[in-house]
Design a protein around this nucleic acid. Sequence first.
RNA 1: GGGAGUUUAGCUCAGCUGGUUCAGAGCACCUGCCUUACAAGCAGGGGGUCAUUGGUUCGAGUCCAAUAAUUCCCACCA
Length: 877
Amino acid sequence: MELKKNYNPAEVEDKWYAYWLKNRCFHSEPDSREPYTIVIPPPNVTGILHMGHVLNNTLNDVLIRKARMDGKNACWVPGTDHASIATENKVVARLAERGIRKEDLTREEFLKYAWEWKEEHGGIILQQLRKLGASCDWDRTKFTMEPALSDAVTATFVYFYKKGLIYHGYRMVNWDPVAHTAISDDEVIHKDTQSHFYHLRYFISDGKGNPTDDFLVIATTRPETIMADSAICVNPADERYHHLRGKKVLIPLINREIPVIEDDYVEMDFGTGCLKVTPAHDAHDYEIGQRHNLPIIEILDDDGRLTADARILVGEDRFVARKKICKMLEESGNLVKVEEYTSPVGYSERTDAVIEPKLSKQWFLKLEGLAAEALDKVESGRIKFIPDKYRNVYHHWMENAHDWCISRQLWWGQRIPAWYLPDGSFVVEETAEKALAAARKINPALTAADLRQDEDVLDTWFSSWLWPISVFDAKRPGHPEHKPNRDLGYYYPTSDLVTAPDIIFFWVARMIMAGGEFMNDIPFSNVYFTGIVRDKLGRKMSKTLGNSPDPLVLIEKYGADSVRLGMLLCSSAGNDILYDESQVEQGRNFCGKIWNSWRLVSGWRVDENGRQPESARVAVKWFDNLLSRTITAVEDHYKKFRINDALMATYKLFWDDYCSWYLELVKPTFGEAIDGYTYDATVGFFDKLLKLIHPVMPFITEEIWHAMADRRPGETIMFERTPVAGPYDEDFLAGFEQARQIITGVRGIRAQKQIAPKDPLKLCLEGEVSQEFYPIIAKSAGISAFVDAVDGAAVSFIVGTVKCSVPLEGLVDTAQERAKVEAELEHQRKFLAGVRAKLANEKFVAHAPEAVVAVERKKEADALARIEALEASLKTL
RNA sequence: GGGAGUUUAGCUCAGCUGGUUCAGAGCACCUGCCUUACAAGCAGGGGGUCAUUGGUUCGAGUCCAAUAAUUCCCACCA
């Protein structure tokens, strides 16, 4: 089939994707083959494709296509994540555009809007993945909030609650007094803010609530919270305050008595060494309060105004109160001094209001046991991290894992399955019916109307951590006694996970925990961490900077194959990727190269009975060997997840070796036909090369593979087998390499217009190149004279068909040659001494693995042989 | 402040147990070519004290220590 002059990816890509879908090429069912499974890191349901997705999904697709061609039953499960915070924010923003406020809606009304939005925009990203060529099994598409998966989440909550691992407790949240909502840590921006450091005098109590003359001084930036103080804390090692042990002090202005306590948290040389403890309004103070059983006194309301519990300045805004209380403290003589002070203060990303730490009731999952087990899975090597350095990060975090706060003050998500009884107690059950039944055991008079379900929803990660299980069998999580269905039994554990390192704790660690708890097995064997995609200047891709290209525009412009190649070219595992459009251009250029090389080969006239030229025979032999060697290397690279090394090896094999050398060597002279044997070999090589390239560039390889021969309907290169490496001859390949250098050398001499007739001969002599390669040197360099034999002082060579002989002298510069040999000899002797020293080391021989010692012995023998040869050649010079 | 990395050619990175894969790759650059597959190409070429300083060793990009620069994670200090 004749190819068009130019490759047009747009025409080809849609055609083949539709073809693959039509023939259900991506679909997988359990069978007798070995499974290779990947679950997609589910993108946000309302997300749109960005460069990070392109990188991640290209890598996933390369792995899955490679596995498919290796004959495995490859299954890539796609899906989306409900992403509660992000999606809810988007829905809220969209409603705001229409003039609707979330506060004015009921939960049901809001969720109706949210689902509408999801139906409209959810799945856009999955459509975009198709453009990229992702070979996902679309029949298996899942959504983390679809009924079955939501039930799994609820069941999991109930399971852990009944196991005693989930508890209801307090936690400091970041309260935004303007937006009237708690916001996540990520939404808090710390800014260095100019403020004051107030030194306040607290008098020691005489024990009856009256001040003595003695006092201590504390330093604070928030004097308006002194009314919420529960204690004064000093470091136990601080001798300055030992005399205050067991004493009480009086809060200025309100004269409430509070104890002096000791805790290591306090740093002696910061401030005065005395810390006022305000458990209700500072996260650290809360922890100290917990340790020392201090009362929690809240004096700020949801607007950030002082409450009646403050006893003074009631109703004042916290910042107004700060100014006023300073004046009052000054008047009462409690204000010692005020210093200028700059400290980081948290601001809300949304409203820019200063964040108020606020206590609120939340649900927690105890991680201690789960984390220890999950840590062991990685430490023991059952799960491998690529690159390995992330094991350290993982280790450090898992050792210090805090309990996981799993409740979120949102509506979009799985609602917490806890029902409160009128008396304030609660029951945890999978459904309202079961909850009522459980509640009636406590109080038989209760009706459904008496129960009130918890308003909060669960953290998105509380559903994501079940993903590798629930996509196959949603009944299993929460019910470890449930017998796995056929899919789960066959596909779990999955093979590899490709994801970004920033969610190693949020997601990767937790999937390992869930896997251990519900499957008693690892969720995947290997985790490949990609880097973060940055722009050319090393900046993170972001919407606000506008430095993130739209992948779809890139695909439109260059084709998906080019975008995929461009992305992979610069991505070694774990390193950040500095994206530049020139890499995609390189991908496009490679497409052009593949295309044109097939145009060349397919255009040849074949003479089945033609005689194969010697140069072609050698070229075929060479490329056959080289192909085997490269396939071996590529397989090794894939095994080690060195995807871009595998890619680069293939890229160079095709461009540098196949196109620039092989095709030039076998190319028939203009107007002549190619012999059948060489032609078949050439097409055979092309076929294998296409299969090697296919996992990276699926579309162009499919197109050309179909152009190469008449294929049966539904046939695809996707299901062809990865070419297998045969044995190869290193010496032969090395010989060819020498010949190649000679040719390059000759070309170099010509390029510099220093045409010296004897140079090629000299190069042949020096390179000790085998006669086998003379034909290719002749073809490539256009030299028709070759060394035939070296005999003492003369060299005989062949020019055309005539043999002649010239004296060696003049061809070789003896003195220079001698110096070279001597230098080499010295190097070899030194090397030999080193190797022998190593071998003489008893410890080395005793402890090193046998293979390593063998390598050293071989080095010794080789060096000896070389020295001998060099000494011999020195004599002849 | 605590922890973990990184530093090799103009750029992005390889370099596995210290030596015979020992200074590499791709891109960029320079020179010459519109040669009948491809100028998105072909042919040739230049370029690095392997961050600095010490140490271990017969031998150090490779191992150790310190310094400097830089990135990420955690905490952000009353």
